[in-house]
């Protein structure tokens, strides 16, 4: 079995042409990337606004919970039936797939963003206002930089789910690595299916690694604990105010910084408030 999979993966014929692994991988990345981008454009500003103003939390939490409870397969089919006749060519399958992935990605990104802002040390926020920062300055100079670890953890959680779920686009006839699974099942080619599953998992891992790299670059060392010298002091921010980031504990968040894990652990202290 393992030999079969290895020989499938090593067969040069599987690495060229429009059905080849590179082309399918590229399609997969493309679907996932576009969905994540659109979901972020919606969910990050909304989450920041909710966290900053403290308004609309209940509505957002319930909407996000409801979005999680929608089965992707059912949503995909209904979207294809609804949008299919109104679009032509690949778009008839592409947009329904993208919508499913966007709906999937919004809840974790949204809750990461608002939990991140809500979790900012109230004393830091108070000090920022007290020294004369405007609402916008407080958000952009204090709240967003401090919320970045949780924003990233929401984003990474969403990315893993989107990359894994993008395979179902193949069910409605378009590309991506899901093709290897669906086509493999049609012709009972098990090595091809295993290869497809492996490639999706590896891609998910690589995407997570890439996001972890960006996170490392973007988040201040003061928040991650990745500082070169260690003072004997206690942590400045007490994370007691931190609320639950997101229910999905980023399945493959392999390289989460130590501090981020601490934040997540602390986050667990308050009763998580997401619901469906």
């Amino acid at each position: 079995m393992i030999n079969d999979v290895a020989s499938w993966l090593l067969d040069p014929a599987h690495w060229t042409g429009p059905d080849g692994v590179p082309a399918r991988t590229w399609e997969h990345i493309w679907y996932s990337g576009v969905s994540l981008l659109i979901a972020s454009l919606i969910a990050v500003p909304a989450g920041l606004l909710i966290g900053h103003t403290g308004r609309g939390r209940v509505v957002a939490v319930n909407l996000a919970g409801a979005a999680r409870a929608v089965p992707s397969l059912g949503l995909l089919f209904i979207m294809v039936l609804f949008l299919g006749p109104r679009l032509s060519g690949d778009a008839a399958s592409l947009w329904p797939s993208l919508i499913v992935l966007i709906v999937l990605a919004i809840p974790p990104i949204l809750s990461g963003a608002y939990a991140g802002v809500e979790g900012v040390d109230p004393a830091a926020r108070d000090a920022a206002r007290g020294m004369g920062m405007t609402g916008w300055e407080v958000l952009s100079r204090v709240e967003v930089p401090c919320a970045l670890p949780l924003i990233f953890s929401g984003l990474r959680s969403a990315a893993l789910q989107v990359v894994a779920t993008a395979t179902i686009a193949a069910i409605v006839g378009i590309g991506g690595l899901g093709r290897l699974l669906i086509d493999g099942q049609a012709i009972r080619d098990f090595p091809q299916m295993v290869s497809g599953a492996l490639l999706v998992a590896v891609l998910a891992l690589l995407v997570d690694l890439a996001l972890a790299g960006v996170q490392r670059y973007a988040v201040s060392p003061g928040l991650t604990g990745r500082t070169t010298t260690r003072g004997g002091g206690r942590a400045a921010t007490d994370a007691d105010g931190t609320t639950d980031a997101d229910g999905i504990p980023a399945p493959g968040a392999v390289f989460a910084g130590e501090k981020e894990l601490a934040v997540r652990r602390e986050a667990g202290k308050t009763e998580p408030r997401h619901n469906s």
Partner: peptide, 12 residues
């Protein structure tokens, strides 16, 4: 303005 827990910005 000085407050009890200093309220320093952890990212700076």
């Amino acid at each position: 303005y000085v407050i009890q827990h200093a309220g320093l910005f952890p990212h700076r």
